[in-house]
């Protein structure tokens, strides 16, 4: 009798109705969260696809995937100097956060590079081969080593272990871009001056 009486009070009826509706949808959402949980590894894969895959470890993790895993668990997104601003913006878009400036503790953004072994100086110690994260160095003990330029990510990890300091990081030279004729000052294409030999 008393329950029916309580239900007949307007305020209480409203409260109970909302409680009931809340509980129903709450449990539905809770079920959906468990049943349709986003696959954690797919998130890591997506983050990893944005990272530049230099495997340089400048972020403090041993490679890009470990950093991607750390980001998925809440690590800061601004620790990747090879990716630079572009990667940070993409990560921010992906994760729905604010882009941050690159953390200078982990290095600064530099142009793309490739390692080069001065082969005459190489003693064949294989230390760089062991350090290379992408197997881009070819050689054997007491044989000259060389970098396969197309495989090198310019991560810089081979520089430190070299006992004779015979590895350089060279900037990848970009060929001059082709030019459209407009040559306007506000054109996005930069053109060097025309050079023609004076006619005889």
């Amino acid at each position: 009798m008393s329950a029916v009486f309580l239900f007949e009070q307007d305020g209480l009826r409203a409260l109970l109705t909302f409680l009931l509706v809340g509980a129903t949808f709450g449990s539905l959402l809770g079920f959906a969260a468990v049943r349709f949980a986003s696959d954690d590894s797919s998130l890591v894969d997506t983050i990893n696809a944005v990272l530049p895959q230099t495997q340089c470890g400048q972020c403090g993790y041993p490679g890009c995937r470990p950093y991607a895993e750390a980001i998925s668990l809440g690590e800061a997104i601004n620790k990747c100097p090879p990716g630079g601003e572009e990667t940070i913006v993409e990560l921010a878009q992906l994760l729905g956060t604010e882009p941050l400036p690159l953390d200078p503790d982990h290095g600064t953004e530099t142009p793309a590079k490739v390692a080069f072994i001065r082969e005459a100086e190489c003693i064949g110690c294989t230390k760089c081969i062991q350090a290379c994260p992408v197997d881009a160095i070819l050689g054997a003990a007491k044989q000259m080593h060389t970098v396969i330029a197309s495989e090198c990510t310019g991560c810089d990890l081979c520089i430190e272990p070299c006992p004779v300091d015979c590895i350089d990081l060279l900037e990848i030279s970009s060929t001059p871009t082709s030019a459209m004729h407009s040559g306007q000052d506000d054109s996005p294409i930069r053109v060097t001056t025309t050079r023609v030999k004076a006619p005889l």
Binding site: A179, G183, T194
Partner: peptide, 21 residues
């Protein structure tokens, strides 16, 4: 050379500025 304002490879619309004569 003195008369030449623009030296292009191609026509007047799609031609590309010649960098090295």
């Amino acid at each position: 050379q003195d008369q030449c304002h623009k030296l292009l490879a191609g026509g007047s619309i799609m031609g590309k500025l010649i960098i090295d004569g």
